[in-house]
């Protein structure tokens, strides 16, 4: 019989001990975790840290291009990276439903380890709870991340330096993650070749930061999509934004599925996309640096900061019309990450 997760695996007793030793410590291995202290003991060489947390409940757990484990690493690493921070340490907490398949859990943990290695971060602490069958849906993961931040980069989160004429850049096609997850849901009975863009962006962002000191804002366009980030940016800066819909890269299969189901790719979730606001004169070098990276090979300028309609984002539509760009009301797709 296939090995299953039992209530005892979360009891704190022998089964828990074995699970930690044979699964988590084995895959996540690093010196801090190996010490198995109650708290991870870390030394940092700065007084500025970025600190973030995120929970992952994606359904289904496995989808083309990733799984909940990869997502749990990339999501938190990206939250740190778009703040201008260097991601260093992660915690990982698991809530697992009794009876969950052990092999699937191992696949998820392996993905987390691989993704963490790629991003150059260490998973240094964690927790496991097992709940009775039916009391949670298979597995939920929470990751918390810690990174160091140069004091010169604090404006990237606050958007304080955003000014008229700055260009808005995205690192590739939009809507892939949301549509990949949706297509993977059985009830839709859809077959598609859409792959999630789920990836850690810290190396890509680092390349951009290395070539320009004038990156004025960054945010990852996850739930709510690109439209939500841009609307928020207009609101927090009080400046106008103008986007050219024709310049926004969208994969044909994503466009097709969105048309079919009545979604607008601008509102569909991404898990490997960053919106950057860059001073006009630095745009070319940032684009060049990003285009040289696999995760940024479709980078393009999609709009700019303008004086008109302060506090509001506008879009020039594919046919040359104009309208406002608004935030999403309500949940478009539940459990997308």
């Amino acid at each position: 019989m296939d090995k299953k997760i039992l209530l005892g695996h979360g009891s704190g007793g022998k089964l828990t001990h074995n699970l930690i030793e044979n699964l988590f410590v084995r895959h996540f291995h690093n010196p801090v975790l190996a010490d198995q202290t109650d708290s991870a003991l870390l030394s940092l060489d700065t007084t500025n840290v970025a600190f973030t947390t995120d929970s992952f409940v994606v359904d289904p757990l496995f989808f083309p291009g990733g799984n909940i484990g990869k997502l749990a690493i990339a999501g938190t690493v990206n939250d740190l990276a778009v703040s201008g921070a260097k991601p260093l340490y992660l915690s990982a907490s698991f809530i697992i439903e009794e009876g969950y398949d052990f092999n699937d859990l191992e696949k998820i943990v392996q993905s987390m380890a691989e993704e963490a290695k790629k991003a150059g971060v260490q998973i240094v602490t964690g927790d496991t709870k097992v709940v009775n069958k039916g009391k949670c849906d298979k597995i939920f993961i929470t990751t918390t991340g810690l990174g160091t931040l140069s004091s010169q980069l604090k404006h990237i989160s606050t958007a304080d330096k955003v000014k008229r004429g700055d260009k808005i850049i995205i690192n590739g096609t939009i809507g892939d993650h949301g549509m990949a997850v949706l297509a993977a849901r059985e009830f839709l009975n859809l077959k598609s070749d859409i792959t999630s863009d789920c990836a850690c962006l810290n190396h890509l962002i680092n390349k951009a930061l290395n070539v320009s000191a004038q990156i004025h804002f960054m945010r990852d366009a996850t739930r709510g999509g690109v439209a939500t980030v841009l609307t928020e940016l207009a609101e927090i800066t009080g400046m106008g934004i103008e986007i050219d819909e024709q310049q926004i890269p969208v994969n044909e299969n994503v466009r097709g599925m969105c048309e079919l189901l009545g979604y607008d790719p601008l509102y569909v979730a991404n898990e490997g996309k960053v919106i950057m606001v860059v001073a006009s004169e630095d745009t070319d070098q940032v684009l060049k640096a990003m285009n040289n990276n696999k995760l940024g090979s479709n980078s393009s300028v999609i709009g700019e900061i303008v004086d008109e309609h302060p506090g509001r984002a506008w879009i020039k539509t594919t046919i040359g019309g104009k309208r406002i760009l608004d935030m999403l009301a309500g949940e478009q797709l539940p459990r997308i990450c």
Binding site: D264, I315, T317, T318, I319, G320, G321, K322, R323
Partner: peptide
């Protein structure tokens, strides 16, 4: 009509 910004045209 609204999504494509037709009144503008």
């Amino acid at each position: 009509i609204q999504k494509f910004g037709i009144p503008f045209l």
